[in-house]
Computed example of a mutant assay.
Amino acid sequence: METIEQYLPREVRVGVIGVGLMGADHVARLASRIKGARVSVVTDYLREKAQEMADGVPGCRVVDTAEELIAAKDVDAVLIASPGTFHRDQAIACIAARKPVLCEKPLAMNPEDAYAVVQAEAEAQKATGRRFVSVGFMRRFDAEYAELKDAIDSGELGQVSVINCKHRNATTHPGFVDSMMVYDSAVHEIDAIHYFLDEAITEVQAVLPLPGPRAAEGQHDPMLLLLRTSSGRIVTDELYVNTDSGYEVRTEVLGSAGIATIGMGITRVTTQMAGGTWGGTVPFDYRPRFAAAYDAEVQAWITAVLDGSNIALRSATAWDGYLAAATCEAAEQALTTPGFVPVTARPRP
Rank of each mutant, 00 (worst) to 15 (best):
residue 311 I to P: 07
residue 167 H to S: 05
residue 50 A to V: 14
residue 204 V to I: 01
residue 8 L to P: 03
residue 315 S to A: 15
residue 89 D to R: 12
residue 131 R to T: 00
residue 120 A to E: 03
residue 39 V to G: 12
residue 227 L to M: 05
residue 155 G to F: 15
residue 223 M to R: 01
residue 101 V to E: 04
residue 300 A to I: 10
residue 91 A to V: 14
residue 22 M to L: 14
residue 186 A to P: 08
residue 180 M to N: 10
residue 117 V to S: 04
residue 201 I to V: 04
residue 73 K to R: 15
residue 39 V to P: 11
residue 233 R to G: 00
residue 218 G to N: 04
residue 195 Y to A: 03
residue 36 G to A: 06
residue 7 Y to P: 01
residue 120 A to T: 01
residue 248 E to C: 08
residue 148 L to F: 08
residue 199 E to V: 09
residue 81 A to G: 09
residue 124 A to W: 00
residue 233 R to K: 00
residue 160 V to Y: 03
residue 149 K to G: 09
residue 258 G to M: 05
residue 211 P to E: 05
residue 84 G to K: 04
residue 4 I to K: 11
residue 150 D to M: 12
residue 129 G to L: 00
residue 7 Y to G: 01
residue 312 A to C: 04
residue 99 K to D: 01
residue 245 S to L: 14
residue 282 V to E: 10
residue 298 V to S: 13
residue 292 A to K: 13
residue 44 D to G: 00
residue 228 R to A: 03
residue 297 E to H: 15
residue 23 G to T: 07
residue 57 V to M: 07
residue 333 Q to W: 05
residue 132 F to V: 02
residue 336 T to L: 03
residue 310 N to A: 05
residue 88 R to L: 02
residue 222 P to Y: 05
residue 276 G to T: 11
residue 129 G to Y: 00
residue 55 D to A: 15
residue 37 A to N: 06
residue 108 A to E: 00
residue 66 A to N: 13
residue 55 D to K: 15
residue 235 V to Q: 02
residue 59 G to T: 08
residue 59 G to V: 08
residue 335 L to R: 02
residue 244 D to M: 06
residue 142 D to F: 13
residue 242 N to T: 07
residue 181 M to N: 12
residue 341 V to G: 02
residue 142 D to M: 05
residue 33 R to T: 02
residue 17 I to A: 08
residue 151 A to S: 15
residue 187 V to P: 06
residue 88 R to P: 05
residue 185 S to K: 10
residue 321 G to Y: 01
residue 313 L to Y: 05
